[in-house]
Amino acid sequence: MDKKPRHLMNPLDFSVEELESLMDLAKDIEANREKYAHACAGKKLATLFYEPSTRTRLSFEAAMLNLGGSVLGFASEDSSSAAKGESVSDTLSVVSCYADICAIRHPKEGAPLVASQHASIPVINAGDGGHQHPTQTLTDLLTIRSLDGKIENLVIGLCGDLKFGRTVHSLINALIRYPNIRFVLISPPELRIPDYIREDVLIKNDIPFEEVIKLEEAMPSLDILYMTRVQKERFFNEEDYLRMKGYYILDKKKMTLAKDNMLVLHPLPRVNEISVEVDEDPRAAYFRQAQYGVYIRMALILTLLDIKV
C-alpha cells in the first residue's frame, strides 16, 4: 500500500528543524538551479484556485516548471467544476487521479483541509480565506534568514491590517518558535491584532510585544518592517475600506527614521502602502522576497514528493 501523503496546511505543520532543512534546500536550489532543473520531470502539479491570485499561482507554477515538471489547473471558481456545484472533496478525489501534487486556494476557511482528507496526493494550502497562507510564511522566514543571516534576536514590526491579515497571524505563530523575537504591532485601532493572537499566542508564550498607532514611532527600533495591504475583499462594506486603506504609507521620509540594515518585507500585491520611491532603497526586500517564494515552493514540492536530488 502507498505511503500516506504529507500535506502542508499550516506553517506549524513543520517543526523548526524541518523548516531549517526546507530552507537549506531552498538555498541550495538558489545556488544550483541547474542541478534541480529536471528533478520533477514527469510529475504534474495541479493548481486549484477557487479565487484569483495571480502571484501565488504563478509562483507555484514557476516553481514546478523550474523543477522540470508540468502544471494543470484552473484560476477561478467560474472555470472549475465548483461552478456546477461539485464539492471540494469530490474534486480532490478526481484530481488525485490526474496529478502528483496539488496546491489549493479557496475563499472558504478550512477548504484545503477538506481537500487533504480526500486526496491521495500531497495537498498544499495556497491560502484559505482569512485563515492560513503557509507558503507565504515559509517565504517570509526564508527571506529573513537569507537576508538577515538568522532568525533570532530581532525586533519585527508588523504594520497595516493586523486584524484580517492572515499572513501576519501565520508569521507571528511561526516566529515565536525562534529565540528572542520581539514584535511591534503597528495598526489603526480598528485593525488591531485579534484577541486570539494577542492573548492565546503572544501573552501565553511570554513573547514581548507592543502595540503602537504611528508607524514613525516604531521605525527606529525595527530590524524588520513587515508591511501589509488593507485588503478590500476582507471588508463587508466599501466605506470602511476607503477610510482605512490610506492610514499607513511607507515613503522615503519615514525610511530616514529606520536603521541602515532594516529590511522592508511585504507579501504583495501592494496598493499604495509602500510608495514606489522606496523600491530603490537597498532595504526594500519585497521583490527579492517574491523570488525566495519560488525557491521555497520548489523546496516544498521536492520535500512533499520525497524527491532527493
Binding site: S87, S89, P107, K108, E109, G110, A111, V114, G129
Partner: peptide
C-alpha cells in the same frame, strides 16, 4: 463562521477540538 468551508460543503461533519 460564514467563511468556514462547513457552511457550503455538504456531508461534512461539524468537528470541534478542545483548544
Amino acid at each position: 463562521n460564514p467563511r468556514c468551508i462547513t457552511s457550503i460543503e455538504q456531508e461534512l461533519d461539524q468537528v470541534f477540538f478542545l483548544s
